[in-house]
């Protein structure tokens, strides 16, 4: 983080959203500054994934506002949001299994074809594992490789902010380390990152700042390091 006044790239303010008649989020706010890596943690059912889905226009916000680079993008459709510089990686089913690796990446760049070759090169240099297997079907990949491909697909539009829903879910500890290493690298190249994690320790050690959500409300926020040491965080996870 820089000492100059940070500029918010992504700003979600007082978001109210939910499924059916039930509100899951009761006015949640998060901010991602330029080049920042931010974690949202919290116990099961806190509304973390719902928040990401709402920011990305997959779920209607019933209240509040989402701004990207100052522009109001509340309730815009995903195919418009990817053009504005926002990308999203879902937690599960995040590749096209019967398409090849290369085709998966091409689909990531569906809305913008210029400079396709350079962006492909960048993804393949980030994930060399995928390079030799570009003609293989994504359905054949291991869990970790799928996660890499999913990240690669989301990077194909060179987004300003990347939304990641539990990137470490159901991966081996070694693979979690590798994936976070890559996410850090992507972040260091200037892409803002907002990620949701169950795995609070892993997420907070990798990120600059963190938000703790519980019952659809902001509970705590601050520097990731300070949250790691905060006793209240542990208590929240135990449900007290």
């Amino acid at each position: 983080m820089t000492d100059t006044k940070p500029v918010p790239v992504l700003e979600a303010k007082d978001i109210v959203a939910g499924y059916g008649e039930v509100d899951i989020l009761h006015g949640v706010s998060v901010t991602v500054h330029s080049g920042e890596m931010v974690a949202i943690i919290g116990p099961n059912g806190a509304g973390k994934s719902t928040l990401l889905r709402t920011i990305f226009g997959l779920l209607d916000a019933r209240g509040g506002q989402v701004r990207l680079k100052g522009e109001d993008i509340t309730n815009r459709a995903p195919d418009q949001l990817v053009l504005c510089g926002l990308s999203y990686v879902p937690q599960v089913d995040n590749v096209f299994p019967s398409l090849t690796i290369l085709e998966n990446l091409e689909m990531g760049a569906f809305v913008r074809q210029d400079g396709l070759a350079e962006r492909l090169d960048r993804v393949f240099s980030l994930f060399p594992d995928l390079t030799d297997r570009r003609g293989e079907k994504a359905g054949k990949l291991s869990g970790g490789q799928r996660q890499m491909l999913a990240l690669g697909r989301a990077l194909m539009l060179d987004p300003d902010v990347l939304l990641l829903d539990e990137p470490s879910a159901s991966l081996s500890p070694k693979m979690v380390e590798l994936i976070f290493d890559r996410i850090n690298l992507i972040n260091s190249e200037g892409t803002g990152i907002l990620l949701v994690e169950q795995n609070a320790n892993e997420a907070l050690s990798a990120c600059d700042r963190g938000y703790v959500l519980a019952m659809g409300e902001n509970r705590l926020e601050g520097e990731a390091k300070s949250l790691l040491d905060n006793e209240e965080v542990g208590k929240l996870y135990l449900g007290t």
Partner: peptide
């Protein structure tokens, strides 16, 4: 390819901006 992608996973197709 977009048709095949949609067939594979309509939600992800939407997320990809297709």
């Amino acid at each position: 390819k977009a048709m095949r992608a949609y067939s594979d996973n309509p939600d992800l197709a939407l997320v990809s901006g297709i």
